[in-house]
């Protein structure tokens, strides 16, 4: 069992979650993860880590300090990311997923990274 198994399980057990990935923030490569068949995990990992990095740098430069959570909402789903210590926990979910619950779960799981 990997070091991230409990964090992944805590997020993926929620309804509507299609994937949960542990990603290296700097290079956007998947460290560990769990995903439904057909989810392009490499793309979600690379692009979400990139978005998270960009958001962190931008918010720092704008004087808002470090970013701890990022949500990207789209027409047919949402991508959430919470980071700590150079690792980003990424969740890909359908629109019907409970955002409030997922956010809390992701932040809690990220706290243990």
């Amino acid at each position: 069992m990997s070091a991230f198994a409990s964090a992944l399980a805590a997020v993926t057990r929620h309804r509507g979650v299609m994937a949960c990935l542990v990603v290296a923030e700097e290079d956007g490569i998947v460290i560990d993860g769990s995903a439904q068949v057909g989810v392009d995990t490499a793309a979600f990992a690379a692009l979400t880590a990139s978005l998270y990095r960009k958001a962190s740098r931008a918010s720092g430069s704008a004087g808002f300090g470090q970013t701890s959570f990022c949500e990207l909402e789209a027409e047919r789903g949402r991508v959430l990311a919470a980071g700590r210590n150079g690792i980003v926990l990424v969740a890909v979910a359908e629109s019907r997923a409970n955002l409030g619950l997922l956010r809390v779960e992701l932040l809690k799981a990220a706290g243990g990274l």
Partner: peptide, 10 residues
């Protein structure tokens, strides 16, 4: 830092 290994491979 504008890119990453993951992005390049993608």
């Amino acid at each position: 830092t504008e890119s990453s290994l993951g992005i390049v491979q993608l």
